[in-house]
Computed example of a mutant assay.
Amino acid sequence: MKRIIDWGMKALAAFDWPLLAILALMMLLGMTVMQSAVGGTDWRFADQSRNFLIAFFVMWAVALVPPPQLMRLAVPFYILGIVLLLGVEFAGETSKGATRWLNLGFGRIQPSEMMKIAVPLMLAWYFHRHKGKVRILDFLAALVLLAIPFGLIAKQPDLGTALLVFTAGFCVIYLGGLSFKLLVPLMLVGVVGLGALIHYEPKICQPDVSWVMLHDYQKHRVCTLLDPTSDPLGKGFHTIQSMIAVGSGGVYGKGYMQGTQSHLDFIPERTTDFIFAVYAEEFGLYGGVMLLVLYALLITRGLSIAARARSQFGRLMAGSMSMMFFVYVFVNIGMVTGVLPVVGVPLPFMSYGGTALMTLGIASGILMSISHYRPKDP
């Protein structure tokens, strides 16, 4: 009996209660919006409820794994991910023009999703091993470790996931000691490139102009962002309709389950990538600000865990997972409001999908593991 009680206390101690409270609020809000997006409680609502339940237990299981054991899993997990990505490259299944899935016989998986965790895990392990003696060559080696999965995922093509993997990994490299001065030239090149893109948009977006290293659909997404009205019934339809939904919500919103754009099927992918448009139309500016506050609390809690971590590995992983949440939110809301191109990034804990929720559950579990970990005295 005493062992059972001790195990129960240990299992409960794995939770970071402030983080769990924020996640619980996000889940309730996500299921509320999902009910409106699907127009009731159909199979998608039931599936999402099941996905949240699975993600919760996955999060709990990961939270029980101490950071030293997570470090031991870093290298084999990364290697497994690379092998599976190579499997997708040579024997993957194609759907909707993209080869992103691998059939293992008993089921189909998307290896690129696991790299959102595997890449920062590997890089955090790498910088933990080189703590206190990081050299330029170490940063170059880390960039190679990051570039391999990024290139394989971008080639599928899946630019949205590739950017998320790159961002999660690059955050580890930056937090590992990369000087901000080295990033200034890259930032200047980005600003100049963006200005040139806007200035020459009428010429470079012509149908007979091809963009080097980008697929035609990616070119169309960028050109549609710059001028959605150029193809209002085609590539620009998603952006135009989502912007109409967000704007029509006004300050107070139209009311729960009263959104016309969503319930009249004008918003495409309203349960996944564009669920924020459903939310903004019904809850308005006030609701949008409340959602952003919840996300800010989630990210702040993650960064607080990073600041209090007892090891270099813990600080790097917690910081990376927190910034991954930020990028998810920034990219999704940016594309829904027409600020960024449509790249297929879900809104955390709001969009429908089991794989994305599993990844978010693992990330939350890692944060909880780092939060309650106390190394034993030697």
Score class of each variant (00 low, 15 high):
Y286E: 11
L175W: 03
F57W: 09
L357S: 04
I173R: 05
R221W: 02
P268A: 03
G253R: 00
F139V: 12
L85N: 06
F15M: 12
S49A: 15
L298E: 11
P120Y: 01
S242F: 08
I198N: 09
R72A: 15
P228Y: 08
V327F: 15
L182N: 08
L73K: 00
V289F: 12
L123C: 06
A11I: 12
L303P: 05
V165H: 10
F57K: 07
H263L: 12
K131C: 05
A118T: 08
S311P: 09
I240Q: 11
V75Q: 02
S322R: 01
D231M: 04
K133N: 14
L316P: 06
T272C: 03
R135I: 11
M321Y: 03
P348Y: 08
G334A: 12
A318C: 08
F56C: 07
T229Q: 14
E281M: 03
M31Y: 10
Y286A: 11
A147E: 09
R310N: 11
M59W: 01
I22F: 12
L104W: 04
M213E: 12
A11P: 02
L347H: 05
I244Y: 13
K96Q: 14
G247N: 08
A46W: 11
G319K: 09
L70G: 04
G253N: 05
E89G: 13
F330I: 01
V33G: 03
